[in-house]
Design a protein around this nucleic acid. Structure first.
Lengths: 252, 252
DNA sequence: CGGCGGTTTGATGTGACTCAAAAAGAGTGG
DNA sequence: CCACTCTTTTTGAGTCACATCAAACCGCCG
């Protein structure tokens, strides 16, 4: 196991938590040629309108996918943490409709699209896993839309923090109700569709009411039930149950 | 060609506008057993937390996908017009994280998930087309997030109307800059994340400034360039260019 | 012609934005 | 270990876009 395989192993662990892959598919996946690269904070990995030829996995650090508007304001549409596959979509979609950039020192491992598509073609289970991953992605986007469309600043902020908590937990990066979120308040605000100033006041409110605690960039969920209820959080959309099983496919 | 095949033909036309399918795949697709059903306005086709076993195509009318919050407010996350495949995602994702309902008299044609998955397995081109469709879906959700997160009421409203215009045009339901949108202002407001009252005033503003015209439920884009500029609309996210070609797959 | 969804209007309230500047950290070099 | 800078967080005051509530109006259909 080389260092550059680690993020792929994490990704495999993630998708296999839902459905096990056959041994040969696993092995084929792990033997794909990869390139590992380290980036400084706030570096664009993909720019809007680029035509990337590789997809990548997050090893350490954190990246976001974002869109920029005419007036310069930015909306972050998703964050990706270690073990996530970023930009799987660019495997099929030729021109990027959004950018991808780092927020802290980050290591990414990339794989050529052609290799991914061949892998998916050769191992239908992998293809299915990719499709499922895309579907969960879409589900998260939908929830995000609800978040910015219909919830106020307190609700959205706690909703996002809870989503992070669950995803970090699934990635094994969550202990004592605490996780590291190497992102500034301005960045978070860009994701939440509010201003940094207003996010700051919102965080203060959450702290004052003992819902969360913060120490530099680490976040502690202090009162999980209250947070869930404030956010109106329902974990269904993260679909931890995994995809429909192949066994169930036979004519019903 | 039976009546219940029509929506599938439209769907095929849609995906084949991007990439042609081999003849046997086409034929297999068209010979799937279907059920055609007509619904009245405001009927739930799928309820949140359901476990649907069939996906459907829109024949006539219009359906929306939506999520409901605790306080009863609703956020529509997408609309589907004739020729769209709705809820392709439920083929793999077991439990629905959102509802689907009609807004006007609507005919849907449904296909069993098991059939769709077998089709996709037997014809990789179809599997790829499904995956691509999911990706475009996700791209639309992302844009929608940007819309509600970072644009004001006028910008979002014109953005949504332009998206509709392009999609209706692609579906051949657009003439003289005009299309039928069988949806109330309250419904549109649910999609835009604003109140019906405010949407109403926004539409009045758009009319007064000669950007659009409305006659009952039909909408005319009166000044396309101005609308595009107001909305900050960029059509990339609809990905009309289609998926990466198989021919390009060979090791680069 | 009355009832009924849907649209429009009006008055008032407020959550979030804007601009600006102070305070607190974090990193760097002497 | 302390000055210095740069970034991030925090505070304050004024403003605006959009929400809320409520009523009137309109077109459609039986």
């Amino acid at each position: 196991v080389t260092a550059s395989q680690t993020p792929i192993l994490s990704y495999l662990a993630k998708i296999e938590a839902r459905t096990a892959l056959p041994e040969d598919a696993r092995r084929a996946f792990l033997s794909l040629p990869t390139i590992s690269q380290t980036y400084r904070p706030y570096v664009d990995v993909v720019r809007e309108r680029d035509r990337p030829t590789r997809s990548c996995f997050v090893g350490t650090g954190l990246v976001s996918r974002y869109k920029t508007l005419r007036n310069g304001s930015r909306q972050i549409v998703s964050f990706h943490i270690p073990g996530d596959m970023v930009d799987l979509q660019s495997a099929l979609v030729v021109v990027a409709d959004h950018g991808i950039r780092t927020h802290c020192p980050t290591t990414l491992v990339s794989v050529a699209h052609s290799d991914l598509l061949e892998l998916a073609a050769a191992h239908p289970e992998v293809g299915r896993a990719f499709w499922f991953d895309t579907l969960v992605d879409a589900a998260i986007f939908r929830e995000w839309t609800v978040n910015v469309g219909r919830r106020n600043a307190r609700e959205r902020t706690s909703h996002l923090l809870l989503e992070f908590a669950l995803r970090f937990k699934a990635a094994g990066l969550y202990e004592d109700d605490t996780f590291e979120l190497p992102v500034t308040q301005a960045d978070l605000a860009d994701a939440l569709g509010i201003t940094a100033v207003h996010l700051n006041r919102t965080l203060q409110w959450l702290r004052k009411h003992r819902l969360i605690r913060t120490h530099s960039r680490s976040i502690t969920i202090e009162n999980w039930p209250e947070m869930v209820s404030l956010a109106g959080f329902e974990a269904v959309y993260l679909h931890p149950e995994g995809p429909r099983q192949i066994g169930k496919l036979g004519r019903a």
